[in-house]
């Protein structure tokens, strides 16, 4: 099964579109290598802007370009993009309503061993709190391809977080279920609903397989559209099951878990358990080691689900 990093897929989709669309502009803050955007910069130098290590400038320049008709894709590590340039995202992108897509690369704990400065465990909360900012966290490169193609068709601001490494695909080439701003039901179930986003979707899917062997029926929802959250999908899933689990590569506050809990609490009360990173600097390690340590893997999710529905 082929696998490439989601960031590489973003670059590939934009390069394909740039063959005919000269208004696409990619911007990097000395991040073309880490963002897998060197091929774009080489192929379309006239549609590429380098800002140097200056994330605030990156986002403001992207907004200015967008205001003059460009489709701006600002590519920078999620840790910096969602904090250093937060005000530019708020004022120049969301508030001024410019067609800027903020691509947060190496999101979450992708830079596991580099420490908290390089982790973006707050980006969902931060970006979601800005009016007129959408937040997307695709689970694999196949879904990323569909998402970026959809984003190319609209003119609204968005923040897209992807991880650093290639991950095992959740979906299969040629049969990727995708509808913009609608969550994807990965598998249906009746005992417990597992709602995940990004790199947590695949372990959630694997957890459902483990649970099946134990006689527990788990529904898995891929909530790549964290904002606007697909509330209908949340309610539909929650109504069928005894309990809901959310799984995300994010701090425990203000992320997918908080948003799903709000909906379930008000629309169809069920027990909701949020699985996330801790409210603390995370332990040192590769992202997989970090996930394993905090139980954010198939076994950890299955264990939690089994306890819940017992």
């Amino acid at each position: 099964m082929s696998k490439i990093a989601n960031k590489q897929m973003i670059c590939e989709v934009l390069m394909e579109a740039s063959k005919t669309d000269k208004d696409i502009v990619a911007l990097c803050s000395d991040s073309r290598g880490s963002g897998s955007f060197t091929p774009f910069a080489d192929a379309y130098p006239e549609q590429f802007v380098e800002t140097g290590i200056a994330e605030q400038n990156l986002v403001s320049i992207a907004a200015g370009l967008a205001k003059c008709g460009k489709k701006a894709y600002a590519v920078s590590p999620a840790c910096f993009l969602s904090t250093r340039s937060y005000e530019q995202a708020k004022v120049d992108v969301a508030y001024s309503n410019t067609n800027v897509k903020l691509i947060g690369i190496s999101g979450g704990v992708s830079y596991g061993a580099l420490g908290m400065s390089h982790h973006s465990a707050q980006d969902i909360a931060a970006m979601s709190a800005i009016p007129n900012m959408r937040v997307y966290i695709p689970s694999d490169h196949l879904q990323t391809k569909e998402l970026v193609r959809a984003l190319l068709k609209d003119e609204k601001p968005a923040y897209i977080r992807v991880g650093r490494n290639a991950v095992d695909p959740t979906y299969e080439e040629g049969t990727v279920p995708f509808e913009m701003d609608r969550a994807t039901v990965v598998c249906e179930g009746t005992d417990v609903a597992i709602i995940a986003c990004g790199e947590m979707v695949k372990p959630a899917k694997d957890a459902a397989a483990i649970l099946k062997e134990q006689g527990i029926s788990a529904e898995v929802i891929d909530m790549y559209c964290v904002k606007p959250l697909d509330k209908e999908a949340v309610v539909k899933a929650a109504q069928k099951v005894k309990a809901v689990i959310t799984v995300e590569e994010h701090a425990p506050f203000g992320g997918l878990g908080s948003m799903v809990s709000q909906v379930v609490g008000s629309e169809c009360p069920r027990r909701v358990i949020n699985m996330s990173l801790p409210d603390a600097p995370v332990i040192t390690g590769t992202s997989q080691e970090v996930f394993d340590y905090y139980g954010l893997n198939a076994e950890g999710i299955a264990k939690k689900a089994a306890e819940l529905v017992k």
Partner: peptide, 16 residues
């Protein structure tokens, strides 16, 4: 914010 935004606007003018 104004100057960096204007850099983007001016760059777009050059590109086009």
């Amino acid at each position: 914010h104004g100057l960096p935004v204007c850099v983007g606007m001016a760059l777009a003018g050059k590109m086009n």
